[in-house]
């Protein structure tokens, strides 16, 4: 049973896993710098400027600082949960990327070996992604509860209520895309949109833009970002569920949030914007598909940052009203409209 081809396959998967994990692990270094630069320029400032040219080494300085910070565990905390909560938040977010396709098959230069630019093409891809991203809520609620601090507990409860409410909405948006693609595999969903931007799900009129709108709002809420960053509402909760964390464990929460932002951007691209597909379709002039994928993801990351520094924050009851009383009824109606269009 164990033959050479199988071992080679496992080694290739190992290499892909290690590469993806390391890239994602170091991505927050770049993203924090970009975010602070974007914030600076939106607010007519320069942003970080002292460490390195245009402050480009600022993130490395922060990382070194985080490594040298004391790891304070409050004396009334539940020590075990307090210690593992950052990992529980971070690890599921990385696991999402096992199913996300970055590109189609490429042939390795100098060999005739085909390499797929995704780690695994699961036949239940989109359900896997929704399930694994839902696990991150355990990190948040354990972190908030184990700190045994009132702000952290309130932040953790708010955050988990918000994340599970919008998870229903996001599942509805995923159902919409599955109806358009007739497959649960993310690779098949991308392939069903190939051939230029007029084939993308966002332009499946009239329901495509509505699904994207629902997905995007749910994504913002799942990420706990402005305008839905109630869990870490500085005005009322100090910092929310991670108020008692310091040093590297705090950095892990931040890492998890940034990687989650990348994952929601990648999902938006895969589900609605054709993944690695060239927008020009038959008139394409040979830009490699993976570059298109990266470019689209970067546009989304920029939009998330842009929104963060442009919009104010909602109140908590407004957040719940938008989720349950607006988005869920719209989604239900839209499921029926999409179904009617597809029969």
């Amino acid at each position: 049973m164990v033959d050479t081809a199988f071992i080679v396959e496992v080694i290739i998967i190992w290499i892909k896993v290690v590469v993806v994990a390391l890239v994602l692990f170091s991505m927050p270094l770049a993203l924090t710098w970009i975010e602070r630069k974007v914030a600076g320029h939106i607010q007519v400032r320069l942003g970080p400027f002292r460490v390195g040219p245009h402050g480009i080494l600022q993130a490395f300085a922060d990382m070194v600082k985080m490594l040298f910070k004391e790891d304070v565990i409050p004396d009334r905390a539940d020590r075990l949960l307090f210690k593992i909560a950052p990992l529980l938040m971070m690890v599921p977010v990385f696991a999402i990327f096992v199913a996300i396709p970055f590109g189609d098959k490429v042939t390795l230069p100098f060999t005739d070996r085909e390499l797929t630019l995704y780690i695994s093409d699961m036949n239940v891809g989109i359900i896997y992604v929704l399930a694994v991203s839902g696990l991150a809520v355990y990190g948040v609620i354990f972190g908030g509860w184990a700190s045994n601090s009132k702000y952290a507990l309130l932040g953790g409860l708010r955050s988990s209520a918000q994340m599970i409410s919008y998870e229903v909405v996001m599942t509805f948006a995923a159902v919409g895309v599955v109806m358009l693609a007739n497959s649960l595999s993310l690779v098949d969903i991308v392939r069903s949109q190939s051939g230029g931007f007029w084939h993308w799900n966002i332009l499946y009129l009239p329901v495509g833009p509505v699904w994207f709108f629902i997905f995007f709002i749910a994504g913002l809420a799942e990420l706990n970002r402005i305008p839905f960053d109630l869990p870490e509402d500085e005005g009322t909760l100090a910092a929310g569920y991670h108020v008692e964390y310091s040093g590297m464990r705090f950095a892990f929460f931040m890492l998890g949030e940034y990687v989650a932002m990348v994952s929601i951007s990648a999902l938006a691209v895969v589900l609605f914007f054709g993944g690695w597909d060239d927008p020009l379709g038959p008139f394409a002039f040979g830009i490699p598909p993976i570059l298109w994928f990266v470019a689209k993801v970067m546009v989304f990351i920029y939009i998330f940052m842009w929104i963060r520094f442009t919009l104010p924050r909602y109140r908590y009851d407004q957040l719940m009203t938008i989720g349950w009383k607006v988005l869920i009824p719209i989604s239900m109606a839209n499921v029926l409209v999409t179904g009617f269009m597809r029969i």
């Binding site: 896993v17 692990f25 971070m90 990385f94 780690i119 695994s120 699961m122 896997y128």
Partner: peptide
């Protein structure tokens, strides 16, 4: 096996990195 083994690999590797 090959479509779900990477999940374990990813979880294991990221946990290792974090620790």
């Amino acid at each position: 096996l090959l479509s779900y083994l990477p999940v374990l690999m990813m979880i294991g590797f990221v946990t290792f990195l974090g620790v």
